[in-house]
């Protein structure tokens, strides 16, 4: 078990600086997910923890110790790669015990560990097979077993589920959550998929362009986004955001916060539009409601409307979020908030 700390870390590749003066602490024993669009530096952070691409300046600490000078193999971390990086020339057993052999673990202990781990991940029957004869899901398990068998203090995972089909991905998600519960070690998980982040994380670290946007629990990230980027990155569909028409400020609301009616409502924010698309997803239906000014996605739990129907969209005041010109969230206590909200209310009267 170990906590991880980044202190004033900068990483450059040639002339381009990907991460600048970043500070971050990843708590011991937590399932932390680094999430963000591609190129945001999340994988770079992960590889710095592993020591595969050491930081240009600053320090990375594992369990309070500066590991800058320590080789990847001696940091007590294990990593699951996106393409699994299984040794194709070795059998499943050899793959799993390669790290143990290098760490001079005795043969009896090795056999015992391999047997027990492979039973845990359901690979017992495949130990003498070559990876090329395994399915994607089984390879994923080999990669997991290879990481688990070393009993690392930190688990690093670089988009480990992105090569699996949708069904298997959901299943592996649950298995990873259970695995984390069982092992209780620090998990650092990188993904670009906010659904994965929301479903698995204790703490989400949301990044964009090498800068941490918000670091919070999935709950907080969803309900109290710090800024427009966070609001629009998280959620399916993401938050509806539109300019307020003054000071470069924006307002937004979650798709499920709006109410659709056939008759005019007296909600705080309201507009009349026409349904242009309808996505029936089973338990919920997502409509796109358009007028000259706004195009918003509205999520309803009842499928009452059809395409081309004219509807009224209404959002209660407590569900509306405001963002300033600097993209940061404007809290309700801010003097500007009341003015902006009033503006929004008047908009509906026009």
């Amino acid at each position: 078990m170990a906590s991880i700390e980044f202190r004033k870390v900068t990483k450059s590749f040639g002339d381009s600086t990907v991460i600048k003066d970043l500070d971050l602490t990843i708590a011991d024993g937590e399932f932390t997910v680094l999430v963000g669009p591609s190129g945001c530096g999340k994988t770079t952070l992960l590889r710095m923890i592993a020591g595969l691409d050491p930081q240009t300046s600053g320090a990375v600490l594992i369990d309070g110790k500066d590991v800058t000078q320590i080789a990847p193999g001696q940091r007590g971390v294990a990593m699951v790669f996106q393409n699994y990086a299984i040794y194709p020339t070795m059998s499943v057993r050899e793959n799993i015990e390669f790290g143990l052999k290098n760490n001079k673990v005795s043969k009896e202990e090795r056999t015992e560990l391999v047997e027990s781990i492979s039973a845990t991940v359901g690979l017992s029957e495949y130990l003498d097979r070559k990876p090329s004869t395994l399915s994607g899901g089984q390879r994923q398990r080999v990669a997991l077993a290879r990481a688990m068998v070393k009993k690392p203090s930190v688990f690093l995972m670089d988009e480990p589920l992105s090569n699996l089909d949708a069904k298997l991905r959901i299943q592996m998600r649950i298995e990873l959550i259970e695995l984390h519960k069982k092992l209780g070690t620090t998990f650092v998980y990188v993904t670009h998929d906010q659904v994965e982040a929301m479903s698995m994380a204790d703490t989400i670290v949301l990044m964009n362009k090498g800068v941490i946007q918000q670091e919070a629990s999935p709950d907080l990230i969803y309900r109290e986004p710090n800024n427009r980027f966070t609001a629009q990155f998280v959620g399916v569909p993401p938050m509806n955001v539109a300019p307020l028409g003054t000071d470069g400020a924006h307002f937004g609301f979650r798709p499920e916060s709006a109410v659709l009616t056939r008759t005019p409502s007296d909600a705080w924010f309201r507009y009349k539009g026409v349904i242009t698309t309808r996505e029936m997803l089973g338990s919920e239906t997502i409509y796109q409601v358009k007028n000259e000014q706004f195009t918003f996605m509205i999520k309803c739990y009842e499928d009452l409307f059809t395409v081309d129907e004219h509807v009224y969209v209404g959002v209660p005041v407590e569900k509306i979020m405001l963002f300033g010109a600097d993209e940061n969230r404007i809290p309700r206590e801010d003097p500007r908030a009341a003015d902006y909200l009033e503006r929004l209310r008047r908009q509906g009267d026009e």
Binding site: A50, G73, Q74, A85, P88, T89, M90
Partner: peptide
Amino acid sequence: VPPTIYEAAALDNASRFKTFYKITLPM
């Protein structure tokens, strides 16, 4: 040879000789 295999070997604490003998040569 995919570079991630070498990275995996580095994380598995494999020496340079072992990496060459067990990974590069077979690959």
